[in-house]
Simulated assay, not measured.
Amino acid sequence: MRRPARSKDLSAAEFKALLRAEGFVFNRPTDGFIDLQRPTSIRFQRRVAIRAANGRIQRRETLEMLRRVRAEEQAEAARLIEAKARTERLIATLAPSALVAPRAGLAGSEAVRRMADDMRQVAAAAGGITEDDLVALGFTRAQVRTLADDARTLAQQLSGASL
Results as ranks from 00 to 15, higher is better:
11 S>T: 15
12 A>G: 01
12 A>K: 00
13 A>W: 03
19 L>I: 06
20 R>G: 01
20 R>Q: 12
24 F>Y: 15
25 V>G: 03
29 P>I: 05
30 T>G: 07
30 T>Y: 07
31 D>W: 05
33 F>D: 04
33 F>V: 02
33 F>H: 05
34 I>M: 14
35 D>Y: 02
35 D>Q: 02
38 R>T: 03
39 P>A: 12
40 T>A: 14
41 S>Y: 02
42 I>K: 15
43 R>C: 08
45 Q>I: 07
46 R>A: 00
49 A>W: 03
49 A>Q: 03
49 A>I: 00
50 I>H: 06
51 R>P: 01
52 A>V: 00
52 A>S: 13
52 A>E: 13
53 A>S: 14
54 N>D: 15
55 G>T: 05
55 G>K: 07
56 R>N: 06
59 R>F: 06
62 T>R: 04
65 M>P: 03
68 R>C: 03
71 A>M: 07
72 E>N: 12
72 E>K: 10
72 E>V: 00
72 E>F: 05
77 A>P: 04
77 A>C: 06
79 R>W: 09
80 L>T: 04
80 L>G: 08
82 E>C: 06
83 A>K: 08
83 A>N: 07
84 K>V: 10
85 A>S: 09
86 R>V: 12
88 E>L: 10
88 E>F: 01
91 I>E: 04
91 I>G: 02
93 T>D: 11
96 P>E: 07
96 P>C: 04
97 S>A: 12
98 A>W: 10
99 L>V: 09
99 L>K: 14
99 L>R: 15
100 V>E: 14
103 R>D: 01
105 G>T: 11
106 L>A: 04
106 L>Y: 05
107 A>H: 12
109 S>H: 14
111 A>P: 05
111 A>D: 06
112 V>G: 06
118 D>H: 05
119 M>P: 01
127 G>E: 13
128 G>F: 10
131 E>V: 15
